[in-house]
Design a protein around this nucleic acid. Structure first.
Lengths: 147, 147
DNA sequence: TAAAATTCGTTGCAAATGAAACGATGTCAA
DNA sequence: TTGACATCGTTTCATTTGCAACGAATTTTA
């Protein structure tokens, strides 16, 4: 019924959180290499770019909530992207605690490139799966991710 | 056909590596809290304990390969576990570059407790899934994790 | 067998992370 | 009003990580 190698013993690969973490790490590797090498970006930076590319104008807080990233990490990612010239920050005149972010032209180009790369990678993965397998996987991951 | 929220736009939750990372993070959270608070252990430390508990005697190198963890991290985890009194190190007399590790009595108790907690957590997750869903999920994760 | 190369594990250093405190701003209630 | 509290984002500090260099032990090669 299950895939234990030693009869009676509990294997780490039976532990779903472990197995999923390993799988996610393997799947993320290739794409991570791409944005790290091509744009010298960290994971949080690429996620911020993605959210801004998709939703145009967001505050750091918005990104924290959407992406479930701690505000410290987002703050540093935003600073790094600002220094790279990929986004601008504009203080909200209605509530000066808020800073509205949006991508520059250069940032937009990075977004388009990375989004296309992600879509291509995704399409490739999907081709290897039957529709049924994909449906189950996507549904369960969505459920666990609580997105 | 797919779950996009904005027609025509590509959502991050469509990107399998991202979605799986988020799901894995959510699933790992509860268990992580358990070993962090109860035993002040880091993730790598619990994994080392698990491998030693399962396979009794291993070198640091063995653990690196089995768990796909960098030797630096394993080295530091082993040192930490040694200081906590959970394992012993014994230089291999046949090849003095190797150090054979194994759990102490205290380490064994930690292993049993954590393994049981993991099994319980796993069983709870599985109850919520149909056999078909579980089969698909487990098979695909094993495939991607390349374990 | 001597020199070069390899392996195992550790260490030093720079980068990345997490938690808590902070300043600036805004809200609410006395 | 003004004083207490909440929010947004940054900064500081301690911890964790990744990379490269290293020492000791062993194997390979010339």
């Amino acid at each position: 019924m299950n895939k234990q190698t030693n009869s009676g013993s509990y294997d780490l690969s039976d532990f779903l959180p472990y197995l999923m973490t390993q799988a996610a790490d393997q799947l993320s590797m290739e794409f991570q290499t791409y944005y790290r090498e091509k744009y010298k970006m960290l994971r949080t930076e690429w996620r911020v770019v993605f959210h801004l590319g998709t939703f145009s104008e967001l505050t750091a807080k918005d990104i924290c909530e959407r992406a479930r990233i701690h505000k410290t990490k987002v703050s540093r990612a935003v600073s790094a992207l600002d220094e790279k010239g990929y986004l601008t920050r504009k203080i909200d005149t209605n509530d000066r605690r808020h800073t509205v972010l949006h991508l520059t032209k250069a940032g937009e180009e990075v977004f388009v490139d990375l989004r296309d790369a992600a879509m291509g990678f995704d399409a490739k993965l999907r081709e290897e799966l039957s529709d049924e397998d994909f449906e189950v996987l996507h549904r369960l991951l969505l459920k666990y991710a609580k997105l």
